[in-house]
Design a protein around this nucleic acid. Sequence first.
DNA 1: TGAACAATAGTGTGTTGGTATCATTTTTCT
DNA 2: AGAAAAATGATACCAACACACTATTGTTCA
Lengths: 156, 156
Amino acid sequence: MILSKTTGYGVMALAYLAGQEASMVCGLQEIAETECIPPIYLRKILGELRRHRILRSTKGIHGGYSLARLPDTITVWEVNQILAPDPYLDECILGAGCTKADGCVLHGRWQRIRRDYVELLETTTIAQIARSRQMRRSFARRAEDRIVPEEDEEQR
Amino acid sequence: MILSKTTGYGVMALAYLAGQEASMVCGLQEIAETECIPPIYLRKILGELRRHRILRSTKGIHGGYSLARLPDTITVWEVNQILAPDPYLDECILGAGCTKADGCVLHGRWQRIRRDYVELLETTTIAQIARSRQMRRSFARRAEDRIVPEEDEEQR
DNA sequence: TGAACAATAGTGTGTTGGTATCATTTTTCT
DNA sequence: AGAAAAATGATACCAACACACTATTGTTCA
């Protein structure tokens, strides 16, 4: 039930774009490098997201990608459905044993967990991911700032 | 996150044994046929469960398998860990992006869902599965009983 | 001696992550 | 205007892995 690497790549790339100024076009190389994604593979992923109107692309020498929708309207669930559709929507957790109508003891509680999972992905947006990444980055920067003077103090 | 076919087979076979009289020995063929499991594959599965002391086997011409522990002490979680250990215990759902210490926005809620999932499997025992199967079977039998006289009625 | 389990090696297929190639579009330089 | 360069688009391919399953050869015991 964990998300695939491909979905992770897609979410990261979208979050990167969400972190840029709106409708700014970013090149594939730029995204791939800062997010550590194999560029050729990323092209495939972004192509798929473009086909589903999650993002726009412009060709030509200064081409690249930009979000086609506001980042707080794009959910992780949607991205995952595009890149790695999950076939087990309401199948029984134990397999052939029981059908939808005639569930086993696990069925009810399993459905609930499954619903919580879907809801988590549906309520998490690219905008949230981007914000949390930005926060983490600024924490890291502040931590660096704090270390430098301490080293100075030790030296005096 | 759904359980593998192999785990399903294992659980079904154990539930079958739990449905027999205690310490009764059942042959591989018998289990495989009634549970619709490829017999040669089932042998591998039961061998694994035997190695982990979930069940006992006796060789020789009237050999077979029987539970090594009371069925209400064997959990689905345990069976699954033996047959298809889940490696993603507390990894981040989005992959490389964040570590255990430095989680993304999804992290907290995901951990909770994950815990609910593990708890579901840990609190579901082979005995429960066997009981629910027995109940379903007796429902089916009663339904049949009800149908037979109705057919007779139509004929008269 | 024959019917059952034990162990281990092997097989086939599907998915996933990733690559290579060729075509198309657009800017820019001459 | 025209050619070259730089970017995406599309498609086919590839390698590694996991999962479900098989085959074979050996061992035990009524």
